[in-house]
Design a protein around this nucleic acid. Structure first.
Length: 478
RNA sequence: GGUGCCUUGGCCGAGUGGUUAGGCAGUAGAUUGCAAAUCUGCGUACAUCGGUUCGAUUCCGGUAGGCACCUCCA
């Protein structure tokens, strides 16, 4: 099936045509590791994981790179404005910048694992690719795309006419209304830094390019260097938050294509920011929700994934705590149907005579079509629930129960929101509880319902729910 | 100031020029001794004002509100 993705560069849904047939190479702008990741960060990274999973589902061999930005960047070109994010965190936490970066990188990877990511094949650190950045800077200087002033190296956008094409920025209007600090070193205020010098900066390297001074890399060069190192000069997909579009990705294109003369990225995807309880997430509002906050409130990685993935990535997502409760209930509904068909297929539960193979096929096709249409996860979930309802309405036969279970497993492999497959065999309950169940059956037979309900309460207190069925009472862990 | 996006029933959210999105919650019924789960039904849904059209939630324009980028941010 043809996969169509909304390409920021063309402003339309383009069919995914990879440079090498059957292979997708993707780069994702990763975290700057100076603080705990919040759910907004993870919305963007979850898109990367969803693409990885869906492309693999569709038979692609995926090569995925997500960088770790472990060097901070100034918030303005004026050095006197101070410290970058990582240095600020270092001061706050009384650690050196490298310790800060590693601490939050480790935490970030832990969150990825807790959210059931397929880990990217490479997660390179910016600080370990200074040489690669230097090579690009060398080339840009040699070819006249960059110039050096007082040890600082700037990319000269006047030399790259396509600057602004990706983001659709009209260069003449770029500065209107924006607070841009005057920097008289630059030939054009919109030129951006490739290398900077500042004696006060804690992270410093000898210049990795010819004729330079000791300093640190500019904001954008790391992504070009690492993307090209691991994916080649030209690759298929690049993702990031919508805020990255300008200037970050615009600058990446300029410096990369100026250096190589080749198209840097075929398809650009940008993830829309989310809201929290209807409001923009911001420090001043104090409504930052970190991944740790979600776990602290007792929600699982699957539940968080569900709450985020249920909305297509280009739509504003309103994250709410009640939405997490909804996710929990929705997941439960799917899992119940899933367990049912697994048990029927395994002979652990009675099979019926209904053939639901057609419904299974239809749901699978709808699921694929939904994701192929710019990763429409909302529609994909509707397809999942169509299958769930079909299962619940029917008494599936063994064959179509197995097919339904396989379909649900596939949906889970792509979305990773429902959890691991239920098992056909229910674990044995403690003997004393089974004894209570038997006693309750006796009480029911004697129509002593007060006694029966009391026994059920006792079993419930032990963590099991008694569910009466045509096949007798079942014990289910709660 | 420039540019772009959005506004769907109690909540979250698809989609479409005329036909049921889906989930959660609620409610009535079936089933059950009672439950749980499940199934079925229900709830004046498409911000607002105009326009185009046989017909608009779905296209066009105005208005109101929200969001984003232009400045560190996913």
């Amino acid at each position: 099936m043809t996969i169509r993705l909304y390409n920021t560069a063309t402003r339309q849904k383009d069919p995914l045509v990879t440079r090498t047939e059957g292979r997708v190479r993707m780069y994702h702008c990763g975290p700057t590791v100076y603080a705990s990741a919040h759910i907004g960060n993870f919305r963007a990274f979850l898109l990367a994981d969803l693409m990885r999973r869906f492309f693999e589902d569709q038979g692609f061999e995926v090569l995925q790179v997500m960088n770790i930005t472990d060097v901070g960047h100034m918030t303005a070109d004026d050095e006197d404005l101070g410290v970058d994010a990582i240095e600020a965190a270092a001061e706050r936490e009384r650690l050196d910048p490298y310790q800060i970066a590693r601490k939050y990188e480790d935490e970030f990877k832990g969150f990825m694992a807790a959210l059931h990511f397929r880990m990217p094949h490479h997660m390179p650190r910016a600080t370990e690719h200074i040489a690669e950045m230097g090579a690009i800077i060398d080339t840009l200087l040699e070819h006249g795309y960059a110039y050096q002033v007082n040890g600082n190296v700037y990319f000269e956008i006047a030399k790259f006419p396509r600057y602004g094409a990706l983001s659709g920025k009209v260069l003449d209007e770029l500065e209107e209304g924006a607070r841009v600090a005057v920097n008289t070193e630059k030939r054009d205020p919109r030129d951006f830094a490739l290398w900077k010098t500042d004696a006060k900066h804690l992270m410093q390297w000898d210049a990795p390019f010819a004729g330079g001074m000791r300093g640190f890399p500019g904001w954008h060069i790391e992504c070009s260097a690492m993307a090209m190192k691991y994916l080649g000069k030209s690759f298929d997909v690049h993702t990031g938050g919508e805020d990255n579009l300008f200037p970050h990705h615009e600058c990446e294109v300029a410096q990369s294509e100026a250096a190589t003369g080749e198209q840097f990225v075929r398809t650009w995807l940008h993830v829309k920011h989310l809201l929290v309880e209807g409001q923009k997430m911001s420090k001043s509002r104090g409504n930052f929700v970190t991944v740790a906050d979600v776990f602290d409130r007792g929600y699982s990685g699957y539940e968080l994934r569900y709450a985020i993935v249920k909305v297509q990535y280009r739509q504003t997502l309103n994250f709410t705590w009640s939405g997490l409760d909804d996710a929990r209930a929705s997941i439960k509904r799917v899992r119940q149907a899933w367990e049912r068909v697994i048990r029927i297929a395994a002979g652990a539960a009675a099979a019926g005579a209904d053939d639901i193979a057609a419904e299974v096929t239809a749901a699978g096709a709808a699921f694929t079509a939904a994701l192929a249409d710019d990763l429409n996860t909302s529609e994909a979930l509707a397809a999942v629930f169509a299958l769930v309802t079909a299962i619940n309405k029917a008494q599936p036969d063994v064959g179509s129960a197995a097919a339904a279970a396989a379909a649900l497993q596939r949906f889970e492999d792509v979305l990773a929101v429902f959890g691991e497959a239920p098992t056909a065999d229910r674990p044995d309950a403690p003997p004393e509880l089974l004894e209570k169940v038997r006693a309750r059956e006796a009480a029911r037979a004697a129509r002593d319902f007060a006694r029966a309900d009391q026994l059920r309460d006792e079993v419930a207190a032990a963590g099991y729910r008694i569910v009466d069925s045509s096949a007798g009472p079942q014990l289910e862990p709660m």
